[in-house]
């Protein structure tokens, strides 16, 4: 496991009390070791998957701040969260890859069909993740399950214990709220 900076524990303690500067410093500091850990655990993962796993871990850490005990080291806490969330990301990626068909043999003129450049897609993904992070917990969870993890409504209902109708409502409201947030950020 990566070396732990002694200040991380303090920053996390401060973050639990609402210190935004300490929290931002902590999240920035843990990204390089987090990337290394993800890469070490999934050596075949591509850069985009690693970044997805890192971001999912940060989102889960954000929702689990209350679980951290400052008497214990911070790195095992972060590593534990990474194992759960990054596994989800990798599983989802593998499933998606199994469903998709490579189109390497399509003539080069088909490039003209692309609507967004890779850079634009990366920026769009970042904006979207940032906006999703700002949604209320229920809407965020519904969108994560039905849209990001691409679960069916039935699968999401089984995992969440909610009815399909409740999930539909939460997803609908989430998309509406997301649209407002994205329109506002333009």
């Amino acid at each position: 496991m990566a070396e732990e900076d002694p200040s991380w524990r303090e920053w996390m303690r401060a973050a639990q009390q609402g210190d935004r500067a300490a929290y931002a410093a902590l999240l920035t500091a843990v990204i390089p070791p987090l990337r290394r850990l993800v890469r070490a655990r999934w050596p075949r993962a591509g850069l985009a998957e690693i970044e997805d796993a890192v971001q999912e871990t940060l989102l889960a850490l954000h929702g689990s701040r209350h679980l951290y005990d400052p008497a214990r080291p911070f790195m095992p806490f972060l590593f534990g969260i990474m194992r759960f969330r990054a596994s989800d990301v990798m599983r989802h990626t593998r499933r998606a890859a199994a469903r998709e068909t490579p189109i390497d043999d399509v003539p080069e003129t088909s490039g003209a069909l692309a609507t967004n450049s890779t850079v634009d897609q990366t920026l769009d993904a970042g904006t979207l993740r940032a906006a999703i992070a700002r949604l209320p917990a229920g809407q965020r969870q519904a969108l994560e399950m039905t849209k990001l993890r691409e679960m069916s409504l039935e699968e999401a209902a089984t995992e969440s214990g909610l009815s399909v109708t409740a999930l539909k409502v939460a997803t609908h409201r989430g998309i509406k709220a997301l649209r407002k947030l994205l329109d506002g950020s333009k």
Partner: peptide, 16 residues
């Protein structure tokens, strides 16, 4: 770039 934006967002919304 996008991860930095996510950090800004999470830190900006931080509550005790």
């Amino acid at each position: 770039m996008e991860t930095e934006r996510l950090i800004d967002c999470l830190a900006g919304d931080l509550a005790p």
